[in-house]
Structures are given as structure tokens and as C-alpha cells.
Simulated assay, not measured.
Amino acid sequence: MTSRPAVHLAVPVDDLAAARRFYGEILGLEQGRSTDHWIDWNLRGHQLVTHLVPAASAAAGTSDVDGHRVPIPHFGLLLASEEFHRLAERLRAAGVEFLIEPSLRFAGRPGEQWTMFFRDPAGNALEFKSFADESQIFTT
């Protein structure tokens, strides 16, 4: 059996039903195992676990990136362009409020990318992005 590196990420949520709706129905992630205080999600082969932590607070600060105040901490995925724009429309249709609207960052420069930021119902910041050229993900 060949294995590939995968990320395990645990995030606090204050309402598992809201997490189930957001991560399962809105983001479309497949649900794995769960109990009455956590839910596993398949984040493209990576394990995302939403843990019930009453009164959880994820906000720590922001960082300036290409003219935007990016929330710290945050997590997310790199998507193909078409998938990025479909997700943005699905989020809009679900009434999700963007912290940073879907926008083009670093236009015409190495690492050009579409990006968007929003929060889950517990306040965890998420970023989804799509690079114009995936070979430039780590280009300086």
C-alpha cells in the first residue's frame, strides 16, 4: 500500500449542527466519522476535524497581503479556476458573507491567483484560491 502525505487539521466550532450544514452542505465536503462532540471531514484527502468547543474564538489578527487585511489564522484549499468560481457562486447563493470578496491577487506577477476569504459559523477564517499557473505556487 502506497501512502501520500496528508494534513490533519482540527478546528474549534461552537455548534456541530451549523458545522455539519456549512462544511457538508455548503462546502460539499464528505463527512466521515463523528461523535456528539466532533465530526471528521474529507478535505480533498486531508482530514479536517471540527471539534465542539463552546464559546470558541478563532480570531487572532490580520496581515496585509496585496492591499487586503487577511485574517490570521486561516486555512483552505487550492482549487482549479472553474471550481473556485463555482464555489464562490455557491457561497453567495447560501448567503455567506465574504471577508475578502473573490478577487485577483498579484495580477500579472509571479503567483497570480484568485482568492476569497470567509468565516465558518464558528468564526474560523477560510481562504480558497486558484493560481493562474499552478507551477508558480511557491514562486518568489
Rank of each mutant, 00 (worst) to 15 (best):
S3Y: 08
P5D: 12
V7Y: 08
V7P: 01
H8P: 00
A10P: 05
V11A: 11
V11K: 03
P12A: 15
V13F: 01
L16I: 07
A17C: 02
A18G: 02
R21W: 07
R21K: 08
F22Q: 01
E25A: 05
I26F: 05
L29K: 01
L29C: 08
R33G: 09
R33C: 02
R33F: 15
H37F: 15
H37L: 05
W38Y: 15
R44N: 12
H46Y: 06
Q47M: 13
H51W: 10
V53A: 08
P54R: 14
A55V: 02
S57F: 02
A60H: 06
G61S: 06
G61L: 07
T62M: 06
V65D: 03
V65E: 03
D66N: 14
R69P: 13
R69H: 12
V70D: 00
V70Q: 00
P71V: 12
I72P: 01
I72Y: 09
F75N: 07
F75I: 03
L79C: 06
L79T: 09
S81F: 02
F84V: 07
R86W: 02
L87V: 05
E89R: 08
L91H: 08
R92P: 00
A93R: 12
P102K: 15
L104H: 12
A107C: 06
F118Y: 09
R119N: 11
R119C: 12
P121Q: 03
L126C: 11
F128S: 04
K129I: 11
E134I: 08
E134S: 07
S135G: 07
